[in-house]
């Protein structure tokens, strides 16, 4: 049975089929009927709102659409990203497009010696965490925020950097913290400390940078720029391919002249 559809939903606008089940949701307390199965973000647009704030990548990675919600008759406060959370009947929704955070300025290059002391100097409030765990329960990315804060307190900066890596910096944790910690900005600082001072540097990259700066590749690239499409096609099809399972830094091509 072949059916050529007449009207199709295009772009991000939702066109519900005529028999779609409509459910009530409460956007900032006001009731709207929206089709089930769509996300909070699309439901808010379906209701007629046009986003300026509170909407970003629409793919769960930018942290623009942090959202609080409760269900009628349920005391629990829940959180999610509006672009990733499906609407359910009787949801009472408010978004948190922005939340003020403490973010002291620093000069990454000038941090010497004790990294943990620097964290203590910039973010003393981190060390006043009361361990309530609200941040962890609040995180829409399922990060164990309280755990990485504990690692920070203990001086395990590597652990804190790795544990906080999935953070989209939406600010929901900070909005609920009784100790008034801005966990996500402190974590950003710790990740940069880890990336710069704890992760070992790539020696092969350093060497290649020196080669580029010495102008080593300028002649080779010039040679390619001057080639005809036919000549390039030949070089392209004849180029060797590094085997998928070669050990890093071990395999070398036959053409060593252009390394």
């Amino acid at each position: 049975m072949a059916t050529k559809p007449k009207q199709l939903a295009t772009g991000d606008r939702t066109i519900p089929p005529p028999d779609a089940k409509m459910i009530p949701i409460y956007i900032m307390g006001k009731e709207y009927m929206v089709p089930e199965t769509i996300t909070i973000m699309k439901a808010i647009e379906y209701a007629g709102y046009k986003y300026i704030r509170g909407c970003g990548c629409r793919g769960g990675i930018c942290g623009a659409c942090a959202t609080f919600y409760r269900f009628i008759g349920d005391y629990r406060l829940r959180t999610g990203l509006a672009c990733q959370t499906v609407v359910e009947p009787d949801m009472i929704i408010v978004q948190l497009p922005f939340f003020p955070a403490n973010r002291p300025s620093y000069t990454l290059d000038n941090i010497e010696g004790d990294l943990h002391a620097e964290l203590r100097r910039l973010y003393p409030e981190v060390f006043k965490c009361v361990g309530c765990g609200t941040c962890t329960r609040t995180c829409p990315m399922d990060i164990d925020v309280m755990d990485y804060v504990a690692l920070m307190k203990r001086g395990d900066l590597k652990g804190a950097a790795l544990k906080s890596f999935d953070c989209v910096m939406c600010g929901l944790c900070a909005s609920r913290c009784p100790a008034q910690i801005s966990q996500f900005t402190a974590a950003m600082f710790v990740r940069r400390l880890y990336g710069k001072y704890i992760l070992p540097k790539a020696e092969h990259l350093k060497k290649r940078v020196e080669e580029v700066k010495s102008g080593r590749y300028e002649r080779m690239l010039e040679e390619l720029r001057d080639k005809s499409v036919e000549e390039l096609k030949k070089l392209y099809t004849e180029r060797e391919r590094e085997p998928d399972l070669s050990e890093p830094g071990k395999w070398l091509p036959d053409d060593k002249e252009h390394l």
Partner: peptide, 10 residues
């Protein structure tokens, strides 16, 4: 292109 077997040429 920063590995030994590689270069901006390739």
């Amino acid at each position: 292109a920063d590995q030994e077997c590689d270069s901006p040429y390739f």
